[in-house]
């Protein structure tokens, strides 16, 4: 299997791979929008988009236009953004912490987000998407700030300390969230916590995407600029330093940027697990470990992955809907076990 992967890797040059993946992503988004309880064709989707962008004047019934423009399109784009972003963050975290089991939620960001969202509900700042998203975002950043403070000045020298502090803060936030839920005993809050903890794209609308998209774009550009620098971390931080990388500055810049992006994504979808953990490993089979190939490929692959998993989540048991995080966990856990076994064999 490894030999087959290597053979495939050699035959696919980077350009071809990215074009193929990009075509698959466009096809997936187009196809996913047409899937659902209401029967909608590709031409309808196209007519609605053209109409909205004032490229044409289509005569689409209002209900269908509503389904396409208000419900399905933002949701599918949301899945693509969250999937691509989480996969990129996972790949970078795995490199920076030299831990192949690292994922985007390692630094307590997702637990902070759920605490923030629940706090907004409970304090009564509102229950709209904007208020919840804002609360989740603030909570995620606050949790990350606490992680940085707790790990202290010496953390500059020890990334493991940052990781341990992340675990501790995540536990603290989870406990605080449970406490708030029980204290308030508000069914609304309970529903909300379930949503943030298991992850779902059901609430995504254009407003939520407008928050996340600029953060996603900016952080992806930053990561792309550092792709070659990330390669230098392969043999550890000291090795990177002797290769001329200003290790401390680069590490903090990228940790803060990825925490920011994770916060923005969690605010959109809650904590969707396993995408950031598994996708980088799967994509490395195709691209190898060089971040200049890995990062663009993993973003597109993550987007494709989550678009289809979310489509399955909303249609498999229709009219009931699964939280997408439940499905990613169902797919992710076996992949995770395979990864562990492969590591043992590799030793």
């Amino acid at each position: 299997m490894a030999a087959a992967a290597e053979d495939l890797r050699r035959r696919l040059n980077t350009g071809t791979l990215l074009v193929l993946l990009l075509a698959a992503l466009v096809g997936s988004i187009g196809a996913a929008v047409t899937v659902g309880p209401a029967d909608i064709s590709v031409s309808t989707v196209w007519a609605v988009v053209a109409d909205r962008l004032r490229l044409g004047d289509a005569d689409v019934p209002l209900l269908r236009e509503h389904i396409v423009w208000r419900l399905r399109l933002p949701r599918v784009f949301g899945a693509a953004a969250v999937g691509g972003g989480l996969a990129a963050v996972g790949a970078v975290m795995q490199t920076l912490t030299r831990n192949s089991l690292a994922d985007p939620y390692l630094l307590g960001v997702s637990s902070g987000a759920s605490l923030g969202a629940v706090a907004v509900l409970v304090v009564g700042l509102g229950s709209g998407v904007a208020a919840l998203t804002g609360g989740a975002f603030a909570g995620a950043l606050a949790a990350f700030a606490v992680v940085v403070t707790v790990s202290g000045r010496r953390a500059v020298l020890a990334p493991t300390k940052v990781v341990l502090a992340g675990v501790a803060v995540a536990q603290l936030c989870a406990a605080a969230t449970s406490f708030v839920i029980i204290w308030v005993a508000d069914p609304h809050a309970t529903q909300s916590i379930t949503f943030w903890l298991s992850g779902s794209l059901a609430r995504v609308d254009w407003a939520a995407l407008a928050w996340a998209a600029p953060v996603l774009a900016a952080v992806l550009v930053l990561l792309a600029v550092h792709a070659r620098t990330l390669n230098a971390f392969a043999f550890g931080e000291d090795a990177a330093a002797t290769l001329g990388v200003p290790v401390t500055r680069v590490r903090w810049l990228l940790l803060v940027a990825t925490a920011l992006l994770t916060a923005a994504l969690v605010a959109v979808s809650g904590a969707v697990g396993f995408v950031g953990l598994i996708l980088p490993h799967a994509v490395r089979f195709l691209t190898g470990a060089d971040h200049r190939r890995l990062l663009p490929a993993v973003v597109i692959a993550g987007a494709i992955f989550l678009v289809w998993v979310d489509t399955a989540a909303r249609t498999l048991f229709a009219p009931r809907e699964l939280p997408v995080g439940v499905l990613t966990a169902l797919l992710g856990v076996p992949a995770f076990v395979m990864l562990l076994r492969r590591r043992e064999v590799g030793r």
Binding site: R98, R228, T229, N231, A232, A234, L243, V245, G288, A289
Partner: peptide, 15 residues
């Protein structure tokens, strides 16, 4: 832990 080839490791020296 990363799956690098020999030439990729040597190229790190060009950083």
């Amino acid at each position: 832990d990363l799956d690098l080839t020999a030439i990729e490791v040597v190229l790190l020296g060009r950083t």
